[in-house]
Amino acid sequence: MEIAENAALVVVDVQKGFEEEEHWGPRNNPAADDNIAALIDAWQGTGRPVVFVRHDSPKPDSPLRVGYGGNEFKEYVEQRRGKGDGAELLVTKSVNSAFYGAPDLDAWLKGVGARQIAVAGIQTNMCAETTARMGGNLGYEVFFALDATYTFDGVGPWGWTLGAEELARATAVTLHGGGFARVVRTEELVRAAGAVAA
């Protein structure tokens, strides 16, 4: 795996509102936050660009609504913002894809010359997956750090339900098998990012 010196890390919706289990239900992957932090550290430590994405929900009862504490980034993310030597961007959005936020993520990535993106964050099968899919459609080489994401149990049509881990595996199969992204582990990305920068 080769990670370019200007590959961008896109950190999707790592917000306090996702800690409200009574709203979201059970989650998977308790190691996700540590892995997200490790990726931010690796990117900032090698001077690569980092994009922090925040979901500003227009729904009045959402834990991610503007003006509510849950809209804020989790503490470990907030503490890392502005710490790297590389370019940094804050994108706000109200839909699933970070490419439909403000400012324009695609234009910014092109401006810093990035053709690779690594995606991490919350939720695996929602905003992280949608951002990765769009990135692939736009021609970026996308790395999806599956173990640096998490999601929650889901309910679909006809009473169908899937557990969080099943949904995460479905995302991995769809992204990887469909050619949208290369699904990888945090350790692989951190190692590759360090090797290129050394």
Rank of each mutant, 00 (worst) to 15 (best):
M1H: 10
M1Y: 01
A4K: 09
E5I: 04
N6D: 15
N6L: 13
A8Y: 10
V10G: 09
V11D: 06
D13W: 09
Q15N: 03
K16C: 01
H23N: 06
R27H: 09
N28F: 09
P30H: 01
D34F: 14
D34S: 08
N35P: 04
I36D: 04
A37K: 01
D41R: 06
W43T: 02
W43E: 01
Q44E: 02
Q44D: 09
G45W: 01
G45C: 04
T46G: 03
G47T: 02
R48I: 07
P49F: 06
P49T: 07
S57A: 10
K59R: 08
K59E: 03
S62I: 11
P63N: 03
V66H: 03
Y68C: 13
Y68S: 15
Y68T: 09
G69M: 00
E75M: 01
Y76G: 00
Y76Q: 05
V77K: 05
K83S: 12
G84T: 14
D85L: 12
E88K: 10
E88Q: 07
E88P: 07
L89R: 04
V91S: 01
K93W: 12
K93F: 01
N96E: 04
N96W: 07
S97H: 05
S97M: 08
A98C: 00
P103E: 13
P103M: 06
P103D: 14
D104R: 02
D104L: 02
L105I: 00
L105H: 08
D106Q: 15
D106T: 04
A107T: 08
K110V: 00
G111I: 06
V112R: 08
V112M: 00
G113T: 03
R115P: 00
I117L: 10
V119K: 07
G121K: 07
Q123I: 13
Q123S: 15
T124Q: 09
M126G: 15
C127P: 07
E129P: 11
E129F: 12
T131P: 01
T131S: 11
R133N: 08
M134R: 08
G135D: 02
L138P: 02
G139R: 11
E141I: 02
F144Y: 11
F144M: 03
T151G: 15
T151R: 12
G154W: 02
G154T: 07
G156R: 10
G159T: 01
W160H: 09
G163N: 13
E165Y: 05
L167V: 12
A168Q: 13
T171S: 14
V173E: 14
T174H: 15
T174Q: 12
L175P: 03
G179I: 02
G179C: 05
A181N: 08
A181K: 01
R182K: 15
R185S: 14
T186Y: 11
T186D: 13
E187I: 05
E188W: 07
L189A: 15
L189H: 05
A192Y: 06
A192P: 11
V196G: 07
V196K: 05
